[in-house]
């Protein structure tokens, strides 16, 4: 199959985030929660326009991809996530970039992750 010419490709943005969680979260659980939160907040139509996709996710850092003109909505979706499978979480978007490499290099490498330790308020 022929690749779509660059001018026709949708423009993407890559959001580097950290997930501050009570206890470790698995990738599948996170994906399910992101899509459910997106549908709840923006509706199925709005969520489809955002085209959210979870790319890398390791331990507590990751990258989410979305449409370039929907970064604010995507941020709001991530902010509206309060718990995953009963574990309380806090999304913190570290930065937005136009490429995966940019997002990873600029915001994730060497970033100090906040850990709430074992106790919580």
């Amino acid at each position: 199959m022929k690749v779509l010419p660059p001018t026709l490709r949708p423009k993407k943005r890559y959001l580097a985030f950290e997930l501050i969680a009570e206890s470790p979260i698995s990738r599948d659980e996170l994906i399910r929660e992101i899509f459910s939160a997106a549908s709840h907040l923006l509706g199925d139509v709005g969520a489809s326009e955002c085209a959210i996709r979870l790319l890398a996710f390791e331990e507590s850092n990751g990258v989410v991809r979305c449409e370039s003109d929907r970064t604010e909505n995507t941020r709001a979706v991530l902010a509206s996530i309060t718990s995953i499978k009963g574990k309380r979480v806090l999304f913190h978007v570290l930065g937005i970039s136009g490429t995966v490499l940019g997002a990873t290099k600029k915001y994730l490498e060497g970033a100090d992750v906040f850990s709430p330790q074992n106790s919580h308020i």
């Binding site: 604010e72 909505n73 941020r75």
Partner: peptide, 12 residues
């Protein structure tokens, strides 16, 4: 602490 959101998330 899990209910706090960063300023930029608040703006969004």
């Amino acid at each position: 602490i899990f209910d706090m959101r960063a300023p930029r998330e608040m703006i969004a």
